[in-house]
Computed example of a mutant assay.
Amino acid sequence: MDQENVSATLTVAVPAARVFAVLADPAAHAAIDGTGWVQKAADRAPLTEVGQIFRMDMYHANHPNGDYQVANQVQVLDPPRAIGWLTGQEKDDGHLEFGGWLWRYDLAPLGPSETEVTLTYDWSAVPQSIREYIQFPPFGPEHLTNSLHHLAALVSGPTTTG
């Protein structure tokens, strides 16, 4: 695959600010995830600034440990229009190391109560040393579509999240 990112778009019948609020809540990420890999937020504080770190407990059958944790660093925070983060891990010495892949949501208000949401997974900054043992993208394109449908269900439901 020559392209180094994949994206999907869905229109939801809620204001952009509501969509952004759900995306900025790490506790909602497990319910949004289209693969089932995200288990729960280890850090539950809302995402409020670029550089903020938040950790997620994960599970993947092909991961050496099965259960593992990722550390995410907020890279984009432009309420209510865009939010994105790099995913990495914390090493034994406490140092954070990011693999070069970015998750980003872009929100385009289509009126007072409708929003076009685009989810992009970008691996263009992944170094060759990681590409040697992880295939990109590490999931099918339906993952992004599934995630957007899960997000739509969350934002259309009651105002509280998990």
Rank of each mutant, 00 (worst) to 15 (best):
P141H: 11
D57N: 14
S124L: 06
V50D: 03
Y59S: 08
Q39K: 15
E90C: 03
Y105M: 06
A16W: 01
A41R: 03
A82E: 12
A17P: 00
G157D: 04
T159Y: 08
V14E: 01
T9I: 01
I32A: 07
L148Y: 00
G99Q: 10
A31L: 09
I130Y: 05
L110A: 14
A24L: 08
L107Y: 09
P109S: 09
V19S: 04
I53V: 15
P109R: 10
T120W: 01
W37Y: 13
V155R: 09
P158S: 10
D43W: 00
I83V: 14
R131D: 08
T159R: 12
S156L: 05
D122K: 05
D78N: 12
L96K: 13
V19N: 05
A27C: 11
M58I: 10
K40H: 15
V74G: 08
V6P: 01
T11N: 11
S156Q: 15
H60P: 01
D25M: 07
A152S: 13
V38H: 09
A41M: 01
K40S: 14
I134G: 02
G99A: 15
E116G: 08
R55Y: 03
T120A: 07
S7V: 04
R44C: 07
P138C: 08
D67F: 13
R18T: 00
D93H: 10
S129G: 02
A21K: 11
Y105W: 13
I83P: 01
E97I: 07
A27V: 13
A125Y: 05
A45R: 04
A42P: 00
P137F: 03
T48V: 05
W85N: 03
H95L: 11
A125G: 06
L10W: 06
N62C: 07
E114Y: 02
G111L: 06
G84T: 08
A21R: 14
A27L: 11
M56I: 14
A71G: 06
M56C: 11
S156G: 15
I53C: 07
A13W: 03
I134W: 03
Y68F: 15
G99D: 09
A21Y: 02
F54L: 09
R131S: 12
S156P: 00
N146H: 12
W85K: 05
S129H: 07
P127D: 06
V12D: 01
W101K: 03
N5W: 09
P141A: 11
Y59M: 05
Q3K: 13
W123K: 03
D93A: 10
T160R: 09
G84Y: 07
K40T: 08
